[in-house]
Nucleic acid binder design. Sequence first.
DNA 1: CAAGCGGGTTGACGTGGATCAAACGCCCCA
DNA 2: TGGGGCGTTTGATCCACGTCAACCCGCTTG
Lengths: 247, 247
Amino acid sequence: MPHQAVVPITAEGLKTACSQCNLQELCLPFGMSDGDIDQLDGLVGGRRKVKRHQHLYRVGDTFEAIFAVRTGSFKTDVLLEDGREQVTGFQMSGEIIGLDGISTDAHTCNAVALEDSDVCIIPFANLETLSREVESLQHQFHKVMSREIVRDHGVMMLLGSMRAEERLAAFLINMSQRFTARGFSAAEFHLRMTREEIGSYLGLKLETVSRAFSRFQENGLIKVQQKHIRIVNIGGLKALLSHLPSV
Amino acid sequence: MPHQAVVPITAEGLKTACSQCNLQELCLPFGMSDGDIDQLDGLVGGRRKVKRHQHLYRVGDTFEAIFAVRTGSFKTDVLLEDGREQVTGFQMSGEIIGLDGISTDAHTCNAVALEDSDVCIIPFANLETLSREVESLQHQFHKVMSREIVRDHGVMMLLGSMRAEERLAAFLINMSQRFTARGFSAAEFHLRMTREEIGSYLGLKLETVSRAFSRFQENGLIKVQQKHIRIVNIGGLKALLSHLPSV
DNA sequence: CAAGCGGGTTGACGTGGATCAAACGCCCCA
DNA sequence: TGGGGCGTTTGATCCACGTCAACCCGCTTG
């Protein structure tokens, strides 16, 4: 296995992993009462650091745990035999990675760190056991999975029915919302992924992504400097999605 | 609510809904032991008939239950404000519909019968309660959700990275496999959806779907007569996917 | 400080699939 | 039995995005 070693953590530290974590509002325990969260001792089996460009898991790895992003960010992708890549998602702090592995006990996509990151390891056996005891955990976990399905439907909509600029506008609005939820600026942020990765996610070539960025800038919607994005006219971006005249 | 009335069923009939059902191998209980399946009394809350072109549920309907297709088939779709439709999936007997509703307690897509159909109603509260008691049910349900996520990733691959003929070949192979699993011919089947619905699912216009069908026929891969499809050269179809020279 | 390189931008051109349009065939129903 | 309409097929044309190519910029490394 090409995996890095699990970061050793004291049993004491992990006992309070969730109850002490400031990502509660974004992560699995979202919506659970403090009392219920206190029951999650032992849910997290460890932590793991993953360096930029390293894999958290690969297609075919046996599935044992899901992961909660603590810091950093990831992409997940699937490959075709001839090498074509499809990025299926980008994950930020508090988000859960690895749900794809449950169905066959083996991972069906790759998860790669976009920057130096670390994750909580949630052994799936722990999660299922605790879920049978803590009703709210069970329900939250089901919501997390369902949310992933709903998100995937949104991506299908995007890939199947939108044109290039609509796709990129949807992407930027989505990123903005997720940064906001994490206490960062809604208008100014740093993308961790390349134009090629954005393109793969959106079903476009990197040149098309680059051109759409430039067009948005010409139209005064955003300011682009490489990976640094400033949204100048969020209404204009949203109007692109609803096919309304831009404000 | 525009829903049809639930078909009244005797309590006795439902007590054995799953243990007596011949769809076990395809449905939620797949992989569970007979003993465990016997514990599923009360899981199914009722049955419902849905006529062709009628909705099983709509975007915004409150979520109370998931559904298992007993007979017939469905499509699920999402709409953009301007009316563009994206079909997110086609469901056949034994498959589960409605998982999208868990995340927000309201459905986020529409489910429409492609032909006269009927479904088992599985109240979600029942499912969560029983899942806490029957470990194998819990695990199977998690697998069903995960399988849906993996399927969605496949659709993203298709929409984001494949060309028209590859998409249609993938679609036909997938249909063939699902008919086979249900004891029907792998080579000859009747599509219940229109060219437009196939196109929406595959991110193509109906004319493009039609032309691709014609091309496949010219090349001796299939025989098409409206909705009736006969696969003549399955290897050739698969070769289209792997970018290999067709056999 | 120069060279090398990965990522990004921009331009010129090509093409796969969309669009527009016409006609066909199956099926329902009077 | 004979319309009428939806779903499908097919042709002609168009255009959004892909492809190919040149160049730029900021970083890293020797």
